[in-house]
Simulated scan of single mutants.
Amino acid sequence: MTAGAGEPLHRHSSLGYQVNHLGRLLAQALRARTAPHGVVPGQFAQLLALYEQDGLTQNQLCERVRIDQSTMAHTLQRMQRDGLVERAADPADRRRVLITLTGRARELESDLVRAAGEVNAVVTRGLTEEEVTGFMLTLSRLIENLEADSAGGVQS
């Protein structure tokens, strides 16, 4: 149960604290498995989005991975420096720049997907498929609630 207004908030009963803690632990586990390939967790979401659909604009990537433009610009600079992505003018509209995966990034895809699968297997160890599915549904709803709140709307 979470604390209500006026009640003390404790780390172990705080949804935000627990989810943040889980996120940090997931990032550490992912980093341990992807660092040998020259990829850090901050680049992982962008790579997954580009594995799903290569040739996106920076703005499209921001929308898909839900990070702001300045963070994305910095991350893409590092990814370009690390040989993971390239920037090229959109042939359909030369004013737009498309972000595309390099051959190196494509070669890493199976290793990175395997690394993520290993982390997912560790974090869900001892849970049933139904428990994992229920947790994922709950997470999706929590994300929807916060996205609606940040957009100024409230879903019920």
Rank of each mutant, 00 (worst) to 15 (best):
46 Q>T: 12
141 R>E: 15
63 E>V: 06
94 R>K: 09
116 A>D: 08
82 D>H: 05
4 G>V: 07
91 P>G: 01
31 R>E: 13
145 N>M: 12
113 V>T: 09
41 P>F: 00
81 R>D: 15
93 D>Q: 05
98 L>Y: 04
127 L>Y: 10
78 R>S: 11
82 D>R: 02
140 S>K: 10
17 Y>M: 11
134 G>M: 05
110 S>D: 07
7 E>M: 06
152 G>T: 12
51 Y>C: 03
39 V>P: 00
139 L>Q: 09
63 E>Y: 15
135 F>W: 12
98 L>K: 12
119 V>E: 03
59 N>P: 11
155 Q>D: 14
82 D>S: 10
14 S>P: 04
98 L>T: 04
22 L>C: 15
81 R>V: 14
134 G>F: 00
16 G>P: 05
22 L>D: 07
33 R>Q: 01
126 G>F: 02
152 G>K: 01
99 I>M: 06
128 T>K: 09
124 T>D: 03
143 I>S: 13
55 G>P: 03
34 T>G: 00
76 L>Q: 00
84 L>E: 01
84 L>T: 03
131 E>T: 04
78 R>V: 08
99 I>C: 11
88 A>V: 13
86 E>M: 15
145 N>C: 15
101 L>C: 02
72 M>T: 03
132 V>W: 01
138 T>Y: 06
95 R>D: 09
15 L>T: 08
47 L>W: 00
78 R>I: 15
33 R>E: 03
122 V>W: 05
88 A>M: 11
143 I>A: 15
111 D>W: 03
18 Q>H: 08
63 E>M: 11
114 R>E: 14
10 H>V: 13
44 F>N: 07
124 T>A: 12
95 R>N: 07
70 S>I: 14
11 R>T: 06
85 V>S: 02
116 A>Y: 05
85 V>R: 00
61 L>Q: 01
32 A>N: 09
156 S>I: 15
11 R>F: 13
20 N>F: 15
103 G>A: 12
49 A>I: 04
101 L>I: 04
130 E>G: 14
88 A>I: 06
